[in-house]
């Protein structure tokens, strides 16, 4: 679709309004309920394990450039770096997109500073390995072995290199936690990692970690967006069942999609 038609416009406006409304409710002071996601509870524990072993942490943000997915991962880096800084531990972040370096460096510096551990922060721990997928993976595997990392985090967009890295992490005995919104690599993370945060839970991580009202509100808003999609689907298939496939709702969606 090159241009939005009125139906698409209405839907998009309604969905945006829903998310914003819940953000407002939440920042207004109302405590909103969010269920627990097991992998998220494990983040602190995983960092702790690396500290116990006295080994550095490796945090891979995957293949994404500076985009929304990577941004989310970077927020998690901030959280992980903060706990690591408390124990003067290192967080090595290999990246595939040089544009991400300044952002991650900034975030890490801030985290270490907030724990008054500036001296433990080494900007060289944020490493550009290569813009090329497997050169990157080979580099990450190399770091895992050379630095003998104690914990690995895989947060972001991953492709085929995921298994190479996760299996290597398992070999060096690192505690591993993975999260990706893309379903392709989840089975391999399920097989090689100790904790896996699946699909959309990826976006819930920050809300659960920080207890920030904006993020919590937004997460609830997201839920209601999906409820609307679900209701539209239920209405749609009910109409199709009763009236046949040529009903008005199908036409609206057909006019707006593809």
């Amino acid at each position: 679709m090159e241009f939005a038609n009125p139906f698409a416009l209405i839907i998009l406006t309604a969905l945006s309004a829903l998310v914003l409304a819940f953000i407002l409710t939440s920042t207004g002071g109302r405590e909103l309920f969010i269920r627990r996601v097991p992998g998220v509870d494990a983040i602190d524990e995983v960092v702790g394990r690396a500290v116990e072993l006295g080994r550095p942490i490796l945090f891979s943000v995957g293949l994404g450039g500076i985009d929304i997915t990577t941004l989310q991962a970077i927020t998690v880096i901030g959280h992980v770096a903060k706990i690591a800084a408390r124990f003067r531990n290192r967080v090595i972040v290999p990246v595939v997109d040089p544009m991400a370096i300044p952002v991650i460096e900034e975030v890490q510096r801030e985290s270490y500073a907030s724990e008054r551990a500036e001296e433990a922060f080494n900007p060289e721990d944020i490493r550009f390995l290569s813009g090329e997928q497997f050169a990157y993976a080979a580099g990450v595997v190399g770091i895992m072995h050379r630095e003998r990392v104690g914990a690995t985090f895989f947060f972001g967009n991953f492709a085929a290199e995921a298994l190479v890295m996760a299996e290597s992490g398992q070999q060096v005995g690192a505690v591993q936690i993975a999260s990706t919104p893309d379903s392709n690599q989840i089975p391999f993370f399920l097989a090689t990692c100790d904790y896996v945060i699946i699909g959309e839970e990826y976006y819930a991580v920050t809300a659960l970690m920080s207890r920030d009202p904006v993020l919590r509100g937004s997460l609830i808003g997201q839920d209601y967006v999906k409820v609307i999609l679900l209701l539209l689907i239920v209405l749609g298939f009910t109409l199709t069942t009763i009236m046949g496939p040529g009903h008005f709702l199908a036409k609206w969606f057909a006019g707006s999609g593809g």
Partner: peptide, 11 residues
Amino acid sequence: ETPIDDQGEAA
């Protein structure tokens, strides 16, 4: 069960 390779062997 998952051998930890302390010599840093094998990728």
